[in-house]
């Protein structure tokens, strides 16, 4: 080796990899033994316990009403989440507004719907027909206003429906879950918006954007990084909570259908196991989706490849050639 001189660049030296005896983990072997015995007992039970009645379960868990219920569950989940997210964004924006009335109202909204359990809320909503046999659109407080002007029994209503006609079980179910979800989504969206550096909105407004535009174009897209992952959890929770709709009741729903078959045939347990298997299947699909979604959003901004593609797309859109290197 030559003597290092101050002007020479240092050269990395060679080194042998470390050879050492690894630490032993006897606890792991004990754990493996315990878990193996428990697993064997469980599998044994699955095969020997007659209450499972596997042939009956497999015969019935794919019947048309169950499959219809499955689609009902999926569509209720999707609809309730879409409405819940949109309403949640509105509530969150109100919550962060400068207007104290909007702030207060959105606080009350989230307080109410977070405090009332979903099962109770859905049961109450299933019985709204008791409160309002008819739903009508017209002048609010028409009877009182009429009295003020000397008209007895004023009835200024333009449209009316029997509650049962327009609020089917399906609609009540979607509405109830969506209203409740919006309260949770509002908190998630609010946290997301608060996570964005206030300098961003400031920079946007300094460029002459209105607050709404700054929110839409600058704040919300950045908040999405924080909002998307918990929204995945909420979607999974929503899918499972559709089973609560048995309290409304909603007939076009998976658990209702499986429960009904079980009660009709006195084979309750196999149908409950079928429900478990169906929910495991559905949630597993969502978990896979969530995995990719979170990986996409964890990556963050800053891929010049994607940016170049986007720029080229933009350029092609208006027929110009991008003057990029």
């Amino acid at each position: 080796m030559s003597e290092p001189t101050p002007s020479a660049t240092p050269v990395p030296r060679q080194a042998d990899p470390i050879k050492a005896v690894p630490v032993r983990h006897p606890g792991r072997w004990v754990a493996i033994a315990v878990i193996a015995v428990l697993a064997a007992m469980f599998v044994h039970m699955l095969f020997t316990n007659k209450a499972f009645n596997w042939p009956f379960m497999f015969e019935n868990m794919f019947r048309p009403p169950v499959i219809k219920g499955l689609w009902g569950t999926v569509s209720i989940t999707v609809l309730a989440m879409i409405i819940g997210v949109l309403l949640g964004i509105v509530v969150a924006v109100c919550r962060l507004s400068e207007n104290p009335i909007l702030r207060g109202a959105s606080w009350v909204y989230t307080w109410f719907f977070r405090a009332v359990p979903r099962l109770v809320l859905l049961t109450v909503m299933g019985n709204l027909g008791l409160l309002w046999p008819r739903l009508e659109i017209g002048v609010p407080f028409d009877v009182y206003i009429g009295k003020l002007f000397g008209v007895e029994d004023a009835n200024w209503r333009f449209l009316g429906f029997t509650t049962r006609d327009i609020l089917s079980g399906f609609a009540v179910g979607v509405l109830g879950l969506a209203l409740s979800e919006a309260a949770y989504m509002a908190e998630i969206v609010r946290a997301g918006m608060l996570s964005v550096d206030p300098g961003q909105e400031e920079a946007a407004t300094a460029l002459g954007m209105s607050r709404g535009k700054a929110l839409r174009r600058v704040v919300l897209p950045q908040a999405m990084r924080v909002i998307i992952p918990p929204t995945g959890n909420e979607t999974i929770a929503m899918l499972k909570d559709t089973s609560l709709l048995i309290a409304v009741p909603v007939t076009a729903e998976l658990f209702f259908q499986l429960d009904a078959i079980g009660k009709r045939t006195f084979q309750i347990f196999p149908m409950y196991v079928a429900a478990i298997l169906w929910y495991l299947f559905l949630v597993s699909i969502l978990l896979v989706g969530q995995y990719f979604l979170e990986r996409r959003f964890a990556r963050g901004y800053g891929r010049s490849g994607a940016a170049k593609l986007k720029l080229e797309g933009l350029a092609a859109e208006h027929g110009g050639k991008p003057e990029l290197p």
Partner: peptide, 12 residues
Amino acid sequence: VFQRFNLFPHMC
């Protein structure tokens, strides 16, 4: 022009 630049990070 701000001290902390405040560029929009989701845009190139």
